[in-house]
Simulated assay, not measured.
Amino acid sequence: MKKVYDSAAEALEGVLFDGMTIAAGGFGLCGIPELLIAAIREAGTKDLTVASNNAGVDDFGLGLLLKTRQVKKMISSYVGENAEFMRQYLSGELELEFNPQGTLAERMRAGGAGIPGFYTKTGVGTVIAEGKEHKEFDGQTYILERGIVADLAIVKAWKADDTGNLVFRKTARNFNPNAATCGKICIAEVEEIVPRGSLDPDKIHLPGIYVHRLLQGEHEKRIEQRTIRAA
């Protein structure tokens, strides 16, 4: 089965449709599938629900899809770096489902593991718990969170072989593995595709069984908040 594609646009061919749910890896601008995001923007796919830790910044990452009004709803933990996100949300143009970061990561992991829901204490007594089932265990109150199963998962890794085994670099191994598993189709972009058998099996972070399509590309790796000392 062919997994390696020449470009993000080619890898997305036949996958995108209006109204779909996308799980996107990355944290801030670290480890984001920037090439796939740009290709989705060019494709013009709209009414998207996107599950991601955040929505990038105004002119990069998922912020590009917000700018073109292609996103209908965000399922996110942190939205503080994106002024357009804030404007659309406050004006009622964008739906937002807030999740604590650990809950969002576990919702993705649960969806990928075939677990429809789980109970957690995180969010009890806050707006996060509104409208959710409450249950008591050992005298403590928990709320039910549903696993996320996305139509498409897009992730970014450091290295891969042609079977889709992935290695993430340092903190880029954040939401990426969990996001990858919860997609009905997973597309990964990587910095380097290495020969089959050259990856140490003990260093593989995500088995290729989860990855359906793969592409190699050049990445900008933009810094979210650049802080330098005086000359």
Rank of each mutant, 00 (worst) to 15 (best):
D6L: 10
A8L: 01
E13R: 05
V15K: 06
F17C: 11
F17H: 06
I22F: 04
L29T: 11
L35K: 15
L36S: 12
R41L: 06
E42V: 11
A43D: 14
K46I: 08
G61H: 13
L62C: 11
L64W: 12
T68E: 15
K73Y: 00
S76N: 12
Y78D: 15
V79N: 14
G80W: 11
E81I: 00
R87K: 13
Q88P: 04
E95A: 09
L104E: 05
E106V: 12
M108Y: 10
A113I: 00
G114P: 02
P116H: 03
K121I: 03
T126S: 14
G131C: 12
K132R: 15
D138L: 13
Q140L: 13
T141E: 08
T141G: 04
Y142L: 13
L144F: 15
L144S: 13
E145W: 06
V149A: 11
K156T: 01
A160H: 05
D161Y: 08
L166V: 10
V167C: 09
V167F: 04
F168N: 07
K170T: 10
G183N: 05
I185Y: 02
I185N: 01
C186N: 00
V190W: 05
I193Y: 04
V194A: 00
P195V: 00
G197W: 06
P201K: 10
P201Y: 07
D202T: 05
K203P: 03
L206N: 01
R213D: 08
Q216M: 13
G217F: 12
H219C: 11
I223E: 06
I228W: 12
R229S: 12
